[in-house]
């Protein structure tokens, strides 16, 4: 279980990104975080694996205090949390295989990985991960030769290499068109259901939220303004979260 307790984040320039954010995520949930751009979704996700240092508050994961972890202990926490980004964040000049293998870095020795030596086992796992996202034949292509949707699938394969118990997905489909959005979210849904991997995912489109989320929290100006089931978000709630002038836009192509 992931417990976020009274989390605050103030950036050095004074921006209050998160204010007193508390919520729990049960194992096996597909939690979707919604909110306007700048409402603190990305900051929240990055605080969970400490890519961003929270200013105040606690994050407990399976009873381990993530916020207090340092050095090797922190890396040990990170390697069990996969992360997927809006911009995919692949190393564009490296091959797909290398990008996927990089997901193992938290598990392998430093010396071997620095010279690019990978065990046959790791390579086999990488190929299985690529097969799983349907890109095994692209293993030796350069990452920047792939389309956006393919790159995001490589990023999922990289996250799979971590044998994660939790996947953080920061707007994983915001750079993709609607068809690809569903394809990517279906991979995440599949991992969530079959592998029992907890997913915490931030999304923009409400129809995607309704389709995939098991539970939703909404952020507004860094504060939690709603926690509940996706179907509870009606017109009134929507205006509350997104402001009076908001009009709902659909990602389209309900799958």
């Amino acid at each position: 279980m992931l417990e976020v307790q009274n989390l605050h984040k103030v950036y050095p320039n004074g921006t209050r990104a998160l204010t007193d954010v508390s919520f729990n995520v049960e194992d096996g949930e597909f939690l979707v975080v919604i909110g306007l751009s700048g409402s603190g979704k990305s900051t929240l996700l990055r605080c969970v694996n400490r890519l961003i240092e929270p200013t105040q508050g606690k994050i407990l994961w399976d009873g381990v205090d993530v916020t207090a972890a340092t050095g090797a202990e922190l890396r040990g926490v990170r390697r069990r949390i996969g992360m997927i980004f809006q911009q995919f964040n692949l190393v564009k000049r490296s091959t797909v295989m290398t990008n996927v293998l990089a997901g193992r870095l938290g598990y392998v020795g430093t010396a071997g990985s620095l010279v690019g030596l990978w065990s046959a086992e790791d390579k086999a796992q990488a190929l299985r991960a690529l097969e799983r996202v349907g890109l095994a034949e692209k293993a030796n292509a350069r990452a920047d030769a792939l389309s956006g949707g393919q790159q995001q699938r490589v990023a999922i394969a990289r996250a799979l290499m971590q044998n994660p118990q939790l996947i953080l997905a920061d707007e994983p489909v915001a750079s993709l068109d609607p068809v690809l959005s569903h394809s990517i979210l279906q991979y995440l849904e599949q991992l969530n259901r079959e592998e029992k991997i907890t997913v915490v995912c931030s999304l923009h489109f409400l129809d995607l939220v309704h389709r995939y989320a098991t539970r939703v929290i909404a952020l507004k100006d860094g504060q939690v303004v709603f926690t509940g089931l996706p179907q509870e978000i009606d017109k009134a709630r929507f205006k509350e979260i997104y402001g009076e002038d908001a009009i709902e836009v659909k990602a389209g192509l309900s799958a």
């Binding site: 890396r75 990170r78 949390i81 996969g82 980004f85 964040n89 564009k92 938290g106």
Partner: peptide, 10 residues
């Protein structure tokens, strides 16, 4: 981005 992603792998 890639640095962030690699850091996130531990």
């Amino acid at each position: 981005g890639p640095i962030e992603a690699i850091r996130a792998t531990g």
